[in-house]
Nucleic acid binder design. Structure first.
Lengths: 212, 212
DNA sequence: TAGATTGTTAATCGATTAACAATC
DNA sequence: TAGATTGTTAATCGATTAACAATC
């Protein structure tokens, strides 16, 4: 992945975690937290937490700590959760359907407009209240609705072709569930969800534990 | 996560990638590859590839490179893909069903025996040919079938309780889709799939690209 | 004010990359 | 043998942790 900023991927991948922990704390009614307390909750060191946050600004106050909801909102804004994104899903199989049905994404600002599939018998049906359309309509649909993100949950052989169409129509983000590396121009971001790799890592770690 | 070996997580998470690239190459009929060529395919440096592999043994041959299928099989064995695992899925919602329906896991040695849910109207049905059972039967089922891995695709409030039951019956691996940190004894491995965090990372990276 | 805790610089640690002798 | 490429040691780079002055 090409990066253009000085924020490291390690820090970036902790941001959603901070957001989650702070959201949980806020829901519990906690108003204030120190980096030391947050360290106990998250397992990150207090030092790392302060370093991470100070990449984006001075959100704390000496002698006091951080305001929980204030920090949560600041991180939400850094992540871009105050925006709305228009999303389509390519591949209306099991995984595509599960994503379409998941309401949590909608409440975070990700609006699924439609799914697309090659299978004739799926076209015209609905998943999670969203229509399944013919994959051949993908390009014009992206144009018409100014779609920003495409989820690729197709078989792997179809993934690059779908990505090429989407990118040519202006999609800027790809959430890729297919077990392939998708090649895109450098102004497009690909985030991979490789479930096989995750499961294999579990297998390795279990094997390692056994052998001790 | 607690680690007991000297292999770093960075290396471990690359193993499934090596396996995937080598499998693809083998399917294409490629017999032999050098670390330099593999570097071009994977994007890792040749030096890193050699370092990574030499954590586990000397699989190459000077002047020649690596035998593709031999290396693939060696890595499969390191990951533990030559084993079979008995798996159950807790939570037969969209994500649980998608996992149950995914045949790729079965062919890698992960055998889903059953799903479990609290919802009365789901119990007795099937998903991907696997029965959905009452969550109250989870403990005895794990005992009876010597289940090794549990997939947790329940709402987050239920995750820790399910994990506790599973661990008390001897489950050694948890593949966790719930957006919480699950606490387990140190002989149990938890591998998290936090889709929200992945999507939020995509959002951040898109926002970052925009602002350049 | 005194105590607490941040923001930030400096030190350490670990991972990646480079270099090269070994060897097929 | 000569050429190629590994395995492995050494150098570099980057991320994490420690320390502490600033300040609320």
């Amino acid at each position: 992945m090409q990066r253009n900023s000085n924020i490291s991927m390690a820090v970036i991948r902790r941001l959603p975690k901070y957001f989650r922990y702070l959201s949980d704390l806020s829901e519990k009614g906690v108003n204030r937290i120190s980096s030391k307390e947050l360290s106990q909750i998250t397992g990150f060191t207090a030092s790392q937490i302060r370093q991470d946050l100070n990449n984006f600004g001075g959100f704390g106050q000496q002698g006091y700590g951080y305001n929980v909801s204030g920090l949560r909102d600041a991180i939400a804004s850094i992540i871009g959760l105050d925006k709305r994104y228009r999303v389509v899903i390519a591949g209306a199989g099991n995984m595509g359907s599960a994503i379409a049905n998941y309401t949590g994404f909608h409440s975070s600002g990700f609006e699924v407009l439609a799914l697309f599939d090659t299978q004739e018998e799926l076209v015209g049906k609905e998943v999670g209240g969203k229509p399944i359309r013919d994959i051949r309509e993908l390009g014009t649909f992206i144009d018409d609705h100014r779609v920003e993100i495409i989820v690729i949950s197709t078989p792997k052989h179809a993934a690059q072709g779908i990505a090429d169409i989407a990118v040519s129509r202006g999609v800027k983000g790809i959430w890729n569930y297919a077990p392939v590396d998708i090649r895109v121009p450098e102004d497009v971001v690909v985030e991979n969800v490789h479930l096989n790799e995750s499961l294999f890592t579990l297998s390795y770690l279990m094997k390692e534990k056994e052998n001790i």
